[in-house]
Lab assay of single mutants.
Amino acid sequence: KVILLEDVKGLGKKGDVVEVKDGYARNFLIPQGLAVEATKGNLKEL
């Protein structure tokens, strides 16, 4: 699961917690600054 930092077409809006494949999160969303891993600490910051 990841928390979206920006609106991502076809996935969700900023602040949404979405389930995506590990590779998509690690190789695209997180490096592009579009999402962060949905850890307990990150979820509390919402």
Rank of each mutant, 00 (worst) to 15 (best):
E37F: 07
K14C: 06
V17D: 02
I3T: 06
T39N: 11
L5C: 04
K40N: 14
A25I: 09
L46E: 13
V17C: 06
G10T: 07
L43C: 11
L46A: 11
I3H: 04
D16E: 09
L4A: 00
E37W: 14
E6I: 14
E19F: 13
A35Y: 02
L11E: 01
F28P: 02
Q32G: 10
K1M: 13
V20C: 13
A25V: 08
T39W: 06
K14E: 05
E37R: 07
L43S: 05
G41H: 14
Y24V: 11
V18S: 02
G12N: 00
V17A: 05
T39P: 09
N42E: 11
G33H: 10
K14Q: 08
D22G: 07
E19Y: 14
K44V: 14
R26D: 14
D22R: 10
K40E: 15
A25H: 05
L46P: 14
K44P: 14
K13M: 14
L11Y: 07
E45F: 04
A38S: 09
K1P: 09
G23A: 14
K21S: 14
K9E: 15
E6D: 09
E45G: 07
L29D: 01
A25Y: 08
D22K: 08
R26H: 15
P31N: 14
G15T: 02
N42S: 04
L4G: 00
Y24I: 09
K1Y: 09
L4P: 00
Q32H: 10
D22M: 09
P31E: 15
A38W: 08
K13V: 09
G15R: 04
K13H: 12
G15S: 05
R26L: 13
F28R: 04
V2E: 00
L5Q: 06
L5Y: 03
E6K: 13
V36K: 10
G23C: 14
V17Q: 10
G10N: 13
L46I: 09
K14V: 08
V20L: 04
G10E: 09
V36L: 11
G12W: 01
V2P: 00
D7F: 12
K1G: 04
R26E: 14
V17S: 06
K44S: 14
A35C: 03
K13S: 11
Y24G: 03
G33L: 09
G15H: 11
K9H: 13
Q32T: 12
V18N: 01
L5N: 03
G41V: 11
K1S: 15
P31Y: 15
D22H: 11
G33N: 10
G12D: 00
A38D: 11
E19R: 14
R26C: 07
K14G: 04
A35E: 01
E45Q: 06
F28T: 11
Y24E: 08
N42Q: 09
E19G: 05
D16L: 05
A25F: 12
K40F: 15
E19H: 10
G15D: 06
V18C: 08
K9A: 14
A38Q: 03
E19M: 11
T39F: 03
G23N: 14
L34A: 04
Q32N: 13
A38Y: 10
K21I: 10
Y24F: 13
N42K: 02
G41M: 06
E45T: 03
K13Y: 12
A35W: 01
K13D: 06
Y24P: 03
N42M: 03
P31A: 13
K40D: 15
Y24M: 06
L11G: 00
D22N: 12
A35P: 01
N27V: 09
G33R: 09
E6P: 00
E45C: 06
V2W: 14
L34Y: 11
K13E: 08
K40V: 15
P31K: 15
K13P: 02
K21L: 12
G12E: 00
L4Q: 00
V17G: 02
E45P: 07
G10R: 06
E45M: 03
N42V: 04
E45Y: 05
I3N: 01
Q32W: 12
I3P: 00
G23H: 12
V36A: 07
L4T: 00
L4Y: 00
D16Y: 09
V36I: 14
V17I: 08
L4H: 00
L46Y: 15
V20P: 03
E37C: 09
I30H: 02
L43D: 13
V17K: 08
L4M: 04
G23V: 12
D16K: 06
G33K: 09
I3V: 11
E37M: 07
A38V: 04
V17R: 05
K40Q: 15
K40G: 13
Q32P: 02
V36S: 06
E45D: 12
G10L: 07
G33I: 03
F28H: 14
E37Q: 07
Y24C: 03
E37P: 07
K1C: 09
G41I: 06
K9I: 12
N27K: 11
L43I: 10
E19D: 13
N27H: 13
D7W: 08
L43V: 05
